[in-house]
Nucleic acid binder design. Structure first.
Lengths: 205, 205
DNA sequence: GTGAAACTTGAGTCAATATTCATATTCGGC
DNA sequence: GCCGAATATGAATATTGACTCAAGTTTCAC
């Protein structure tokens, strides 16, 4: 949620002055709010420019279209989520701890930025290629971490990629249920309980 | 995918003759295809009536609006998925087996009815109340099964509802990745590998 | 067989809103 | 303080597609 506007704008429309960069940033922030609250189709360009405090035409100085802006936003946010989780996990001692911390960080993130969660998920129906790219990158990184942990003997042998998808799916749904819909448990509690499930397993012992 | 048209139409618009019921069924089937292929917003009423082989006006004889039809469809499909999985699971000996069979059935279902998967997920952004209801029911039923299995000592103690959400999330993402996006593994293989993860756990032993 | 209810038709209405563009303003280098 | 480039403006355009409705056709109870 910090580096908005870097690679967001297509080459020929990129701002050339400080004023322009400021305007682009205002537009991206306004767009995140507008898309987050109203969804892609309900969102109106006039809504975005209104929130940003600029005229309608200004939008088209910097963006080709509503969809192009949306794509740029999804990429920004994909980056932001993955970075947020990766940073939180850095402090973890081993893989199981990393899972716990990463999941807690993810749930907390959905709680603090529900609009961001919504925008990424809606991309599935608005810009599917970007959506797939988001989860493919996420899964690929995840699988690498699992492979490394396996090599260190921290976790049992198993298929890295499939495990990554399973764990991501779990996280996304827990984020939706306990981060956005209801908050009857803290991020930490959700993470503890869920990671207990995947680390110890369901089987009675 | 069989009982289309039962509670789908609002009272005052319900068909009163066999001809009418047939037309409603044709419309619902056409709508499932149109929405599945093009998504809610791209889908056009003329597209639906075209596929169904009826005139545009006929649509409004039986449905209040595009969105009302969409809601009806989501409810039908919610029912269909849950029923499909529940039936498959009936043959299972114990809970772990039920998990395996249920997941395989779910993946197979997404593979055979990708349009159905898409419609349910898109409901998140078109008819959120119906979407929530779908997963809340799914989770509630799932949690009941887990509680029963716990009582029988088939699985370790743990929080039923959270486990249900975690397992559902896992299933949905595995269905998306291995059922719809790519098919590099069979439904059975996906289910075996994923259920091994949740039954045995990640921890090295 | 008949008449009213149920059903079907598709051209026309209408609102919404993404995008364009001609014009006006501001900026930064000199 | 001047000039061309960069920005900003918002009224006008153009498309799209959901929904209406008045007029026709079919069904079926009697």
């Amino acid at each position: 949620m910090n580096d908005m506007g870097q690679a967001a704008v297509s080459a020929d429309k990129a701002p050339r002055t400080e004023r322009g960069r400021r305007t682009v940033r205002k537009l991206l922030e306004a767009a995140a709010r507008e898309f987050g609250e109203r969804g892609f189709h309900e969102a109106a360009i006039t809504g975005i420019t209104g929130r940003a405090g600029v005229a309608l035409g200004t939008f088209y100085t910097y963006f080709e279209s509503k969809e192009e802006l949306f794509r740029a936003l999804v990429r920004d946010m994909s980056h932001a989520v993955r970075q947020h989780v990766a940073e939180a996990v850095r402090e973890a001692g081993d893989r199981i701890a990393a899972e716990r911390i990463g999941l807690a960080a993810f749930i907390a993130f959905t709680r603090e930025h529900p609009e961001l969660y919504r925008i990424i998920e809606e991309a599935q129906f608005v810009a599917e290629d970007v959506y797939r790219e988001h989860y493919r990158s996420f899964a690929a990184g995840y699988a690498r971490n699992l492979a490394a942990a396996r090599a260190r003997g921290e976790i049992a042998d198993g298929p890295d990629e499939l495990r990554a998808w399973a764990l991501i799916g779990m996280s996304v749904f827990l984020g939706m249920r306990y981060g956005i819909w209801d908050r009857d448990l803290s991020s930490r509690e959700v993470a503890d309980l869920a990671i207990d499930l995947v680390s110890e397993g369901l089987r009675a012992r």
